[in-house]
Amino acid sequence: MTPPARTQAAIELLDAIIDAARAKGAPADRLIADYFRTRRYAGSKDRRAVRELVYRAIRLCGPVPARGRAAMHALSIADPDLAPLFDGSPHGPEPLVVDELPAPTGIAPKWLVERLAKSGIARDEAKALLERAPLDLRVNSLKASRDTIELPEQGSPLSTPQGLRMPTGLPVENWPAYRDGLIEVQDLGSQWACEAVAPQAGETIVDLCAGAGGKTLALAAATGNEAQIIAADTDARRLGNLRPRAQKAGAQIAETILLNPGKEAEGLSTLSGKADRVLIDAPCSGTGTWRRNPESRWRLDPAELKRLTKLQDHVLDTGAGLVRPGGRLIYVTCSLLNEEGANRFDSFLSRHEGWQAEPVPIAPGTLRGMGVRLTPYRDGTDGFFIAIARAPC
């Protein structure tokens, strides 16, 4: 593909991503993969170049662009080397005209920038949300150790017990260590969230919003398979991925429970008041993960945020019913908005008499309300809010 053809391909992909964002459709990664699946003529260098253009444009444009051409126009202003590629050549974009408007740039839509600022995320903190994310690994201590594992790339030790940071873009999924369950891809912030759970051997631990089980596997490894770990979720597809992942990792999961949305308590009735620890990695807006999913900020609107906060309250109340007297509930969200973090935890404590906030036992982070916040700018992690509540005895 010629450079102009790559630019036109990026415009076409941006059109699809913009339409999907408005319709809450497929994520950008899937759309890019589907696009090239039907264009076999595009080589690996072409695919990398087009993908890079697409994500540069996404990161640059705060509000949802009108169309992909406007987004690429904005990128050509930021990077003048791109402007000559609008040359009208075969398979390339038509030339830009004098009165053609570029897409507006910025961190996010205006209402969301304001919400972030009220939550203490502005200026450098906000800009860091759109930087490229690092590639972090967790060495699976059930099978290996960070000190002795041999990998194609050495990596840099992280502040967690088994964390490694690798150069971005390495094909770790093709490594034998990944295939054999010796390593997992897991952001440093997610690893610290698991450390905050502080799981102990012999305990009953419920991962209430387990998804595909990344944190579930980390908890099993941290306890040396000596805790009873139950993974639950309402998403059958994601939860179905946990069993094969656990088998590969050598992790013993006591039970996986597929829950009926809105009736989670019924599906968990046998665990009522019995769990030593309940981890709630709550569904959220994902503002803390924009480095990995920058187009997600185009999908969020006030109505969706309101829906998510109601869901978070519901999940917190459900989790509280599982905790034994004196047990702990650990609330985690990869959002940096107060509405989904400190405010939700404060609201939980106000609804549940006798519950007490406890210090979060991790080294990084800054205090936010009754919990701790991790941010890309200050901590080199995805954005997280973590808080712990202890049930009355």
Rank of each mutant, 00 (worst) to 15 (best):
P93T: 09
R138N: 10
R179F: 11
A103F: 04
D79P: 08
D124P: 03
G169Q: 10
P93I: 14
Y41L: 09
P102C: 01
R48K: 15
A108Y: 09
R138A: 06
V113M: 05
A42N: 04
T148F: 02
D34I: 01
R48M: 12
R51A: 05
G106S: 11
G181V: 14
D147Q: 10
L85K: 00
E150A: 14
A177F: 07
L170V: 12
R115H: 02
H91Y: 08
A144W: 06
A126Q: 03
D124M: 07
D81A: 15
S141K: 15
A74P: 06
K143P: 06
R59I: 13
R39C: 04
P102W: 12
A126S: 13
Q162W: 11
R48Y: 03
D81S: 15
D87F: 05
R179M: 15
A66F: 03
D136E: 09
C61G: 10
L75N: 09
I107W: 00
L158N: 09
Y55R: 10
W175V: 02
C61S: 11
H73N: 10
V113I: 13
A133C: 05
A128K: 05
Y55C: 14
D180P: 01
D99I: 00
N174L: 14
P63L: 10
S119F: 14
A133Y: 02
V97Y: 00
D46I: 04
P152W: 06
R138M: 06
P65L: 02
G106K: 07
I149P: 13
A108Q: 12
Q162A: 10
R123D: 15
L101G: 00
I77C: 01
P134W: 13
P152K: 11
L130N: 07
D147C: 00
D124F: 00
T38L: 04
E173G: 01
M166I: 06
R59T: 13
T168A: 15
F36D: 02
E100K: 13
R40Y: 00
A103E: 10
Y178W: 14
R146M: 04
L85G: 01
T105C: 15
P63F: 12
V97N: 07
A122W: 02
L135H: 12
P80Q: 14
R51C: 06
V54M: 11
L164Q: 05
I149G: 12
P95S: 06
L75W: 08
L96Q: 13
H73Q: 12
V172M: 09
D180F: 07
Y41G: 15
A108E: 10
P134T: 03
G106F: 01
A103H: 04
A78T: 07
